[in-house]
Design a protein around this nucleic acid. Structure first.
Lengths: 218, 218
DNA sequence: GATTTGTACAGGGTTTTTCCTGTTTTTTAA
DNA sequence: TTAAAAAACAGGAAAAACCCTGTACAAATC
């Protein structure tokens, strides 16, 4: 044990094995110690209440049951705005990255980065208050000037509702009934959306909705 | 460093951060040392050729680019049958578990298990040659007597290929051309599958395929 | 007050999908 | 070898999906 004060870190990840392993790794970095681990956002909330010390940095996994990374981050920004939150994620989905950064994450680590990068990142966060890897930076820049990514093709409430229903076995006639609109109106929605997204048919729409998380799945 | 001989382990996982962390964790277990890490099956093959020592245990991730867990396990069974392979995976998909066990994995760890269970598992593998958690055991038992899970509604190669193509914007005519079959044959496939699965239309099929991981997605 | 914009809707046509009921061909097995 | 089973294919028809163009009307903008 060093006498020099080390920075305190908490890890929030439902994959216990990963969290424990990460704890060891961070423990081996000089100047850092892991205060505690939590399995999800809910667990973190409870632990922050009972724990004597509030960590300076929280490594937050995005995909978690109970209370996911987005919700947790939102809660943290209100209750503990001084804590630096770094997002941790399995996949490099642009949407995820942008959403977490918008919510106020100070960095975004992919789980397949080199351990050295994590150490670099942590140190840089301490110094500068943030750490954005080249990959993350380039995604941000892209998002800024072609805001195709940020805003994307947008849909109004009716269109969105239609899309969600189109991702089912309902016929368009049935959808029209359920939405209390004429089948011709529904056909108009379909046509507009197909043109807007460059789709050939309904299967394409389902695939698009799934890829862009316009519908819940599983 | 202890003088007692410790068991040698290799880790194969494309998530460097996870692999490195796991290395530290296993290093902290008494009686085990990590010989080396590989990023995927191909990398493991190369390292096994150049490395002086062959590990006694290999912790093998299933989802990897280049050469995934299944292929790697198959290769290992031929080239290094004496090595104990333990599967490591993010999700507890029954199919994956059964497939790896069938191919000869001596254990299956989910990445969200408690670190203690990994240690228990490793020790048990040394003693008994295998370690199957309660969860894995119960999946195996299920698979044995109601082989609803193992066989499920089954599809032959053509049907499977058709389903995959149906999950795209291609028309049935185009699918027929690509499969070098008459459109009428394709229509027969469609009809059989709809009846077998109780579907109303193609969107239902797409949703079914996605839910049952009949197609790759994302 | 006039014009643009957005939304709901229609006519009317083509293509694709869906469904039912067969026949022919190939494969499997007795 | 021969009967049975499985796979490929067809005719024909209704329903659904797809596509284009155009109108009615309200709200927002100028």
């Amino acid at each position: 044990m060093e006498v020099t004060k080390s920075y305190t870190v908490a890890i929030v990840d439902d994959h216990l094995l990963f969290a424990s392993s990460l704890e060891k790794l961070i423990g081996s970095f000089k100047g850092f110690q892991v205060l505690f681990k939590a399995e999800n956002g809910e667990d973190l909330k409870n632990q922050l209440k009972t724990q004597a010390q509030i960590p300076q940095i929280i490594l937050l996994d995005i995909n978690m049951p109970i209370m996911n990374g987005f919700e947790t981050l939102k809660w943290l920004k209100i209750k503990h705005p001084q804590v630096i939150v770094l997002a941790l994620s399995m996949d490099d989905n642009e949407m995820y990255i942008l959403r977490m950064l918008k919510e106020g994450a100070k960095g975004y680590f992919l789980k397949d980065i080199h351990p050295g990068e994590l150490e670099t990142g942590l140190n840089e966060v301490i110094e500068k208050g943030f750490y954005y890897s080249d990959r993350v930076t380039s995604i941000m820049v892209d998002a800024l000037h072609d805001n195709k990514m940020t805003s994307g093709p947008s849909f109004n409430d009716n269109e969105l509702e239609f899309i969600q229903m189109a991702c089912s076995e309902m016929t368009y006639k049935e959808i029209a009934e359920k939405m209390k609109l004429s089948p011709k109106t529904i056909d108009g929605y379909r046509q507009d959306i197909f043109k807007k997204l460059g789709l050939r048919n309904r299967v394409g729409l389902v695939l698009y909705a799934l890829k862009n998380k316009l519908i819940e799945f599983r």
